[in-house]
Amino acid sequence: MESFLLILLIFMIVGSIIAIETKNLLSSVISCGVVGFSVSIAFLMLGAPDIAITQVVVEILILVVLIRATITIDNTSIEEHWDTFAVVSSLIFFGLFLVFAFLAVKDLPPFGEPSMRVSQQYLETALQKTGAANVVTSIILDFRGYDTLGEATVLFTSIVGAFVILRRRGRKQRSAADTEKVGILTEEEIKEEYEEFRE
């Protein structure tokens, strides 16, 4: 079990190295997909089938969105300019972060023995309190419902932002639109709108 996860994690790291270092954008995106699907398999091994399913669906959507971003350019291969400052500074960060991470990981609960102070309560009482057989669902929708409300807000905001950014054209005269266009349109305006619609 642990050795399988180890192999999977090394596979993910190799995939991410390929995704970062390859010169072709399309193959970079597909290597990113390799990492995502391995994450999904790891979730399945770790006793989280709900998340594995969600990860597969989201991964496919991520691939579609990223390929949409790369397919707009004619030549997907890129030429790299070596930026010494960025590489050196990030390597220094790399080293420092990993040293501190090694120190911090020692103090975490060891793998396979989580400290379940809150979750034990959820596991014991979820069925009586919420009537849901799936404890994860009962936490999302009942015990921590406000968290999910916040999630929905963030999701809505980001999607609205994406739509606003991708919209083809904005309003032309905002002041006029604010003051005059309250009620009925004149005939000319209707004609204009129709023309715009046909375009």
Binding site: A48, D50, V58, L61, S119, D147, V154, S158, A162
Partner: peptide, 22 residues
């Protein structure tokens, strides 16, 4: 296994997709 991190990660995955679209 611990259900609380799973609930939080389920939220985080979906938010990640929205942020990526933006």
């Amino acid at each position: 296994v611990d259900p609380l991190p799973q609930a939080l990660v389920l939220t985080s995955i979906v938010i990640g997709l929205g942020v990526l679209a933006l």
